[in-house]
């Protein structure tokens, strides 16, 4: 699953994306109203900066074409399978954090990180996750007073206990 991106092409693509972002942002700023130099409007400053950014990114793109990468950077840039999997899991954790609740989302995240990404045994992953999530809940919610969300898991527990 490891991705290999040719260094030059990747560099060029990112620079183009940044340049596009700059131009788009400049257009948004223009619509906000530039005002005058004596009474600068809300779009005044971002407009200038966005144009500078587009110019800078264009420079990066030219540079990517002009400079041949040397030494260790000559080969393709690799994006590890671990990073892709972990990146997806982090996204899932963040999106499920409030909805599914900290306990459920944290437990699933931890268990999958250990078993799926790092290849530990399932039993080990489940036990470790249970301990970590339990300790964190006590530490942060009970002791430090950060109210962690219970989400759907909380509703489920309430339903099982017969409470509204």
């Amino acid at each position: 699953m490891t991705l290999r991106v040719p260094a030059r092409a990747g560099d060029f693509a990112i620079a183009l994306a940044l340049a596009g972002l700059g131009l788009w942002w400049a257009w948004l700023s223009w619509n906000l109203g530039l005002g005058t130099a004596a009474e600068p409007g809300p779009g005044f400053f971002p407009f200038g900066v966005a144009l500078l950014m587009a110019a800078g990114a264009a420079g990066c793109a030219v540079r990517a074409l002009a400079h041949a990468p040397e030494g260790e950077k000559a080969g393709p840039v690799t994006i590890d399978a671990e990073a892709i999997k972990a990146g997806a899991l982090v996204a899932a954790l963040c999106l499920a954090f409030t909805g599914a609740g900290f306990v459920a989302a944290g437990f699933a995240f931890m268990a999958l990180m250990l078993s799926w990404v790092s290849g530990r045994s399932l039993v080990r992953a489940l036990v470790t996750s249970a301990i970590v999530v339990g300790v964190f809940w006590v530490l942060f919610d009970r002791l430090l007073g950060i109210e962690l969300p219970w989400g759907v898991a909380g509703d489920l527990v309430d339903a099982l206990r017969g409470q509204p």
């Binding site: 972990a86 982090v90 954790l93 963040c94 954090f97 409030t98 900290f102 944290g106 995240f109 931890m110 990180m113 250990l114 990404v117 790092s118 530990r120 470790t128 970590v132 999530v133 964190f136 942060f140 950060i146 962690l148 969300p149």
Partner: peptide
């Protein structure tokens, strides 16, 4: 790292949420 990374990520998520 296999243990440290997910633990730290959890702490970060809690920190950001808090």
């Amino acid at each position: 790292m296999a243990y440290l990374a997910p633990i730290v990520i959890l702490i970060c998520a809690i920190g950001v949420y808090s």
